[in-house]
């Protein structure tokens, strides 16, 4: 039994502690906004926040999150997240959309930590998130725009 907080609510998981959090969330909790891309922490599609830190849920195991607070795309709610999601829509960032949950989780974590990220900050924070549609041009613009709106 693993007890943790998921999107603000106490949660218990009765699965193999060696199961990646990704599959526990998707197959056992039923939250499917977090996507599977590689299973090796190479693509970032499965990014969630564990105690506020962006983590690849395919390489984070259920046994590791005892007592932790996990946030998925479905649980984003603060002002930074709302702004990021609004800007993402305003700039029409997604194409296929598959990687975008992970992109947004990483972007929200970046903007929570760094209010005015430089291009280099964005590269550092976002290079772990692959987008095969290559929406990177708009992701970069969206992060700058979100920073501007949050500052205003």
């Amino acid at each position: 039994m693993t007890k943790f907080t998921l999107n603000g609510t106490e949660h218990t998981l009765d699965v193999d502690p060696g199961m990646p959090l990704l599959w526990a969330l998707r197959d056992h909790v039923g939250l499917t906004g977090t996507k599977f891309g590689c299973g090796l922490a190479q693509c970032g599609a499965c990014t969630v926040h564990v105690d506020g830190v962006p983590m690849r849920s395919c390489q984070t195991f259920v046994g590791d999150i005892e007592g932790a607070s996990v946030t998925t795309i479905e649980g984003l709610s603060d002002k930074v997240a709302e702004t990021v999601q609004q800007v993402w829509a305003d700039l029409d960032v997604p194409q296929c959309g598959y990687c975008q949950s992970g992109q947004i989780m990483s972007a929200v974590a970046l903007l929570t930590e760094t209010q005015k990220p430089s291009d280099a900050d964005i590269d550092d924070a976002m290079a772990g998130n692959l987008c095969r549609c290559a929406t990177y041009h708009r992701i970069r613009a969206a992060i700058h725009e979100a920073a501007n709106r949050l500052e205003a």
């Binding site: 499917t32 479905e74 999601q85």
Partner: peptide, 8 residues
């Protein structure tokens, strides 16, 4: 379809 794709 952009909004749904920003919310998972």
């Amino acid at each position: 379809d952009r909004v749904g794709k920003t919310k998972g």
